[in-house]
Structures are given as C-alpha cells and as structure tokens.
Write a protein that binds this DNA or RNA. Structure first.
Lengths: 129, 129
DNA sequence: GTATATGCAAAGGGTTTGCACGGTT
DNA sequence: AACCGTGCAAACCCTTTGCATATAC
C-alpha cells in the first residue's frame, strides 16, 4: 500500500475526530492539505479499511462514520429524539451474541450498525421526534 | 386519514411482501393500479407509518424496508458475506435492553436497525464479502 | 366546496465511477 | 519506467420537494 500525503492526513483525521464522516474528514484534511477531493477521501477510507487501519459504522440517517480500530469496541446508540450518539461497551451484547450464535449460527458484530432508541432526556421529556 | 386506492394497495403490498422496499412495493402496486408514482409510495408509507399501520427497518446498504406492525417483533440480522437477512426473536435482546436501560438510561429498539454479522454458511465457508 | 393526495419533474444528499494527469515505488 | 493514487466532473441511487391537477370527505 502506497503512502501518500492524503492517506496519511486522512488517517490522522479519523483518529482525531469522533464519528468522522467523509465530509468532516475532508474539512479537517483540507485545512492542512488544500485541494484534496471528496472522492479521494472515500477511496482512501476504503483503502485504509481494507488495510485494517480504520473501520466504519452505520449510524442510520447520517453519513457513514469512521473511527480508529482501537476505538471500535463499543456499540453506538442513536437517539431518535435528539440524534445524540451514545457509545456503550460492546461487551453488553455478549449474551445476545452467544445466544444468537448458538441458536442461529449467526455471528453478530454489534458495533457495525448503531442501535436506535431513546435517550433518557427524550424519554422523560416525551419528545416525539 | 383519507382512504385512497393507493394507500390501500400499498398497505396490502407491505403485508404481502417480505422486506418490502419502496421499489418492490411500487412494482407490486403497479400491477393492479397502473400509473402509481414512486413518490406516492414514499408519501403513503410515511402516512401509514404515522398512523401506526406499518413500520420500517434500516437494513444497511439497501433501501429502507417496510413491514406490517404485527411482524415487527424481530431483529434483522444482515450477513455481510451473502447479504441474506435472517429474522430472530426480539426477545433475545431483552437482557441487553434492560442493562442498557439501567446503566445508561437509554431505551433501545433492537428492531429498528438491523445488526450486521456473518451467517453460518459464510462463516464456515470463509467468505470475505 | 375544501382540504388533502396524487402525478410529474426536478432537486437533493451521499456515494461511486471514468478518465487523464501526477506521484510513489 | 510502471503502476497506483489523485483531481475533476459526471453519473448513480435513494429520497424529498414544488406545483398543478384530481379526489375523498
């Protein structure tokens, strides 16, 4: 894998940002490397992911989010009320994982897609949307 | 809520199809009601959902899928190898739900977003994608 | 009769692709 | 020198929106 300035800075941006989207990564990288293109960001992220250096999570309605591999061991909870993203320990899904594996032979990765729900504030506040 | 032929047929199509997407619903409805428009499908689904008659699930890379409310009590597992969608009882996530509720005050709806993973076939077959 | 749904066409957001140029190895 | 990565522009897919017409109430 070739080392280019773009890949380097994109990798750095992912490590620096929380819930980094291609757009926020582009903004971050452009500050130090003007002229970078969005499609380059997409292609670099793909390459970095194939190389096992970053990974992505689907949050739902928003664009894909990327994060460093080490940050990966949590489940993302997206509040349908306020959109807030809460991260919780992936170990909380251990029992679900083992039961699904046992009963259905399916190996779940609970970190790859967020789970929807309602945060405490929206739940108590009765916020509908 | 007004009862129109479109809404009626779209509702029927959702009840008939599995993992109904707006496109597959359109095809189904067009067969019996030619000239229906995709945007009508989207708007009707929105109305039916607001009325509590259908609900939708995010499967990941694919378009939204709609289903009848009664069918709703399962978690969708999407295999990253073959794309297969497996449905399992939502009760399997009961412990995860209560722990997250207790520890984070967050009320998870495990049915709204699918969970990614690998089905038994792809796991054993070592399929990468 | 009036408010709401529909069809159509166009726009929108996120992501992917084709191609020629430039940079890494 | 060969190949891979980049910038640019256009295309792509899914979804939403504006507007005039048609329809349910």
């Amino acid at each position: 894998m070739r080392v280019t300035a773009q890949r380097h800075h994109i990798y750095d941006a992912v490590n620096r940002l929380r819930h980094a989207t291609p757009e926020t990564i582009l903004a971050e990288v452009t500050a130090v490397l003007p002229g970078v293109n969005l499609s380059t960001v997409y292609r670099c992220l793909e390459a970095l992911e194939a190389a096992g250096l970053v990974s992505h999570t689907h949050l739902g309605h928003t664009p894909l989010t990327y994060h460093a591999i080490e940050d990966h061991a949590h489940i993302h909870l997206v509040c349908e009320g306020c959109g807030q993203v809460v991260s919780v320990d992936a170990a909380l899904a251990a029992e679900l994982r083992s039961r699904v594996a046992r009963e259905h032979g399916f190996d779940i990765d609970p970190t790859h897609m967020a789970m929807a729900g309602r945060c405490s504030v929206c739940r108590l506040g009765g916020r509908d949307d």
